[in-house]
């Protein structure tokens, strides 16, 4: 399981956004996290995704504490936790096609032509060949978020953090992406932390397993 233990974290010295937070994400299940804006949900997401070093406390991955954050964490551990952000547009490099975006995690790990896996990912997230060859500014927010989800699951992470993943999307795309994440949970045993301020959505997504801040 993915666990934040006694995590204290923030941005400006002396003003912690997270104060001794404990959160557990079990494998093969969806855990919801609800709370108003500014309560530290995204900071927790960044800490759990190993993108931000907590001031104190630890992140434990399958029982072992992870030291450091970002580049100082070994790539195998970083790829074990995937993350999807709320806003898809700043989350993709404007100079890359969607195919390059989706395949980046694989190419960055030295797989030269991961096109079969990219095909699987596209099918999973509902993208087609024609869309994959477009630039980010040529697709909608919903299509871009599908690509972001495909990118996040490309290295087969054991845990997936969806930080307001559906916040910018219409109802049908939201339903489609929630269904995709559900398939991953059931078929690959991925542990998911679903973060949102939309409680009804979380209740539908995570059942009763919702933490309220």
């Amino acid at each position: 399981m993915l666990r934040a233990r006694e995590v204290v974290a923030g941005y400006d010295r002396g003003r912690a956004v997270l104060d001794r937070v404990d959160v557990v994400v079990p494998p093969g299940a969806v855990r919801g996290l609800a709370g108003p804006s500014g309560c530290g949900k995204s900071t927790l997401a960044r800490v759990l995704a190993l993108l931000q070093r907590p001031w104190s406390g630890t992140v434990e991955l399958d029982g072992r504490p992870v030291r450091g954050a970002r580049y100082s964490v070994p790539a195998e551990l970083r790829t074990a936790v995937g993350i999807v952000f709320q806003q898809p547009r700043p989350a993709v490099d404007p100079r890359m096609t969607l195919r390059q975006v989706v395949s980046e995690p694989l190419r960055a790990r030295g797989i030269r032509r991961p096109w079969r896996r990219v095909g699987e990912l596209a099918e999973l997230t509902g993208l087609n060949d024609e869309l994959l060859d477009r630039m980010p500014h040529e697709v909608s927010d919903g299509q871009l978020q599908r690509a972001c989800l495909a990118r996040a699951v490309a290295p087969r992470p054991r845990y997936l953090i969806c930080d307001e993943m559906t916040g910018m999307l219409d109802a049908s795309t939201t339903a489609a992406l929630v269904r995709v994440v559900g398939e991953l949970v059931n078929e690959e045993g991925t542990g998911v932390l679903a973060i949102s301020h939309d409680e009804p959505l979380l209740l539908a997504w995570a059942g009763d397993d919702v933490i309220r801040w």
Partner: peptide
């Protein structure tokens, strides 16, 4: 520190990449 760099780091990319 752009989100797309965060996404790359999270998916295992190194500094050089």
């Amino acid at each position: 520190n752009r989100p797309y760099v965060d996404a790359a780091v999270s998916s295992g990319a190194g500094r050089w990449w």
